[in-house]
Design a protein around this nucleic acid. Structure first.
Lengths: 337, 337
DNA sequence: CACTAGCAGTCGGTAGACTCGAGTGCTACC
DNA sequence: GGTAGCACTCGAGTCTACCGACTGCTAGTG
């Protein structure tokens, strides 16, 4: 084995050991657990070089090495070629998606919990950008005297509904409903200034109101973040500097919008794994994010992701998000859910 | 001042000081901050007696006293007579409810966050029991070929909707809709065995399906828990034994159903404050819960609550839940929102 | 030249000894 | 009943010594 190649193997071993034990990895540990055919002294030399190159770090002089963010990056880029999920987990995912029959919101929420359970880390599910979702159909329905429900079916199977007030009679509402459908069907929910002309001024007003309300709300909903397994973050405490760090993380997840735009941003740039300091957000300096988009009918419909400490089993996380995103997309495909 | 009366005052002082500082309270601290007209030695005697009676405890011999759960209980029962919220907070609550225009789900969620912000603790909002909510109106709406939406308006303003598959034509659906409305309007969503007879077998099947689906889902939704301010739990870490305790708390909150039934159970027994070991649930041994029901049109519509460490400002928490529950009920009253 | 054996050196972690001071409990007294 | 005063207790912080886990280096080997 060539020297450079061996160094890469050493790096791989250090990452794997450290992920497993959370302890700085000694040269001896590496030679014991891997069959490198060299002595610990040689590994030590490799380690010093890896440290010089920025892949490893030493918490203090007389300690083993731990990977730096750059070290994790190399590991992810070179040693996590698409491994599948272990059969047990693969089955769990299949079972989950075979047996659920939920409204979209609940499904996404429970998907986040599934992913959290699979990876033992916090998990997030992000819906698609409102601007990117097409309207499949729309209508207005009188549900009570004075109350109208705007119902919009979206391309990803989500059904938005919004309550409106209107004193119009049934016939007027029917007319408005038609106009409403024509105005936004096939388009996106971007807050545009579609207008309606039914010839009935009151109906027009209702349609305008409906469009405005629905687009506003769509924006709100599309920025929604489904978070599963927050308790894992608390359990991972020790990976973070202080308990305040955990608190700020939880706060950010409650904030939702920061995370949603972060996730979208990462994916826009084709990033699927973001490690520690690669994250611009301060709260995430000690965290890594592993993402996979899911698609419905070939169109990007959202993203599933795992949020954990940088010391994370990346191979497993990648396999998990891949499996979940794929199954989720498949489930959403045929039905309107 | 009589001796017994003074002891109560000492207890009050200890609770208030301990809540403020999180430090065991010394006899001297009490005499310094309150004008009792007695010396610290007397307070010490009172404290030993309060300890004998189980209201106070000593972390170790040479330390001040901290309240026991029983001590907090006495404090809550005797010294938290309905104080109002400070004007600033009162204003914040009023502003919040004056400016929000959200769907019910979002409103409840944001209400929990408001409450969390007010009290600096985690907050929960629980909807009403599905069995207790009356159906205001119900109908079926064709939204796409092959797809029917069941829409149910509930007494508390919530609008449940559920997607059904059906190949019936418009006329059949209209008939089924009427039967659906008649079958469940005015009743509750308890999973009963209402049946429909429209004379059209296919329509009947749709109605039965709709009833089944809606009642099932209603149960699911009514057990939903809105949680706000989970990050506060992490920040309150030090109040709990280990970080594992926090993790288990978060887990329980994610579980939802445990908390929901706990809250309902407490309120059924007229309990508004549950302190530490008074909670049967193990995870809550170090926590207290402060609850207030909110009502819509005179009927119990749900509960808002605060979840924090036993070392909590009970007077403030009580004032906050009272103010929020009252305003929330008022907001839900007139509109179907 | 690549690798290794061996050994000195470094540094965190733990245990024990010591001190400091906050706060009590008790006793004698008013 | 209330108080002053004092001895006593015990946690927390500091210092020291020591152990042991690892490294880095040097000298040596195929």
């Amino acid at each position: 084995m060539e020297a450079a190649e061996r160094r890469a193997t050493v790096l791989k071993a250090v990452v794997e050991e450290y992920v497993r034990t959370a302890q700085p990895v000694a040269s001896q540990t590496v030679t014991d657990s891997r069959d490198l055919g060299v002595s610990s002294a040689t590994v030590r030399n490799d380690m010093t070089q890896l440290e010089r190159e920025g892949f490893l770090a030493q918490p203090h002089t007389s300690a083993g090495r731990i990977p730096t963010d750059q070290g994790y990056r190399y590991f992810v880029d070179h040693f996590t070629s698409a491994g599948g999920l272990p059969v047990g987990q693969r089955r769990a995912v299949a079972d989950f998606f075979a047996t659920t029959h939920r409204a979209l919101e609940d499904l996404l929420h429970e998907t986040s919990q599934l992913l959290a359970k699979l990876t033992s880390h916090a998990a997030v599910v992000v819906g698609p950008d409102a601007d990117a979702v097409r309207v499949r159909s729309a209508q207005l329905v009188a549900i009570e005297p004075g109350t109208v429900l705007a119902v919009v079916v979206l391309g990803n199977g989500a059904i938005e509904r919004e309550v409106l007030r209107s004193e119009l009679n049934g016939e007027q509402i029917a007319r408005a409903s038609k106009a409403f459908d024509e105005a936004i069907r096939g388009g996106t929910l971007a807050p545009a200034t579609q207008s309606a002309t039914t010839g009935d001024q009151a109906a027009d007003a209702l349609v305008t109101d409906a469009i405005r309300t629905v687009t506003t709300r769509a924006r709100h909903v599309s920025d929604h973040l489904y978070v599963g397994g927050v308790s894992r973050l608390a359990a991972e405490q020790d990976a973070f500097a202080t308990t305040a760090t955990t608190a700020r993380l939880l706060e950010m997840l409650e904030e939702q919008v920061v995370v949603v735009s972060l996730v979208r941003d990462l994916l826009d740039h084709g990033v699927h794994v973001s490690i520690g300091s690669e994250n611009d957000v301060d709260e995430l300096r000690d965290c890594s994010i592993v993402l996979a988009p899911y698609q419905v009918e070939g169109a990007l419909a959202g993203t599933v992701g795992v949020l954990g400490p940088t010391r994370m089993d990346y191979a497993q996380a990648l396999a998990a998000v891949a499996a979940v995103s794929q199954q989720l997309g498949r489930l959403l495909l045929p039905s309107v859910s």
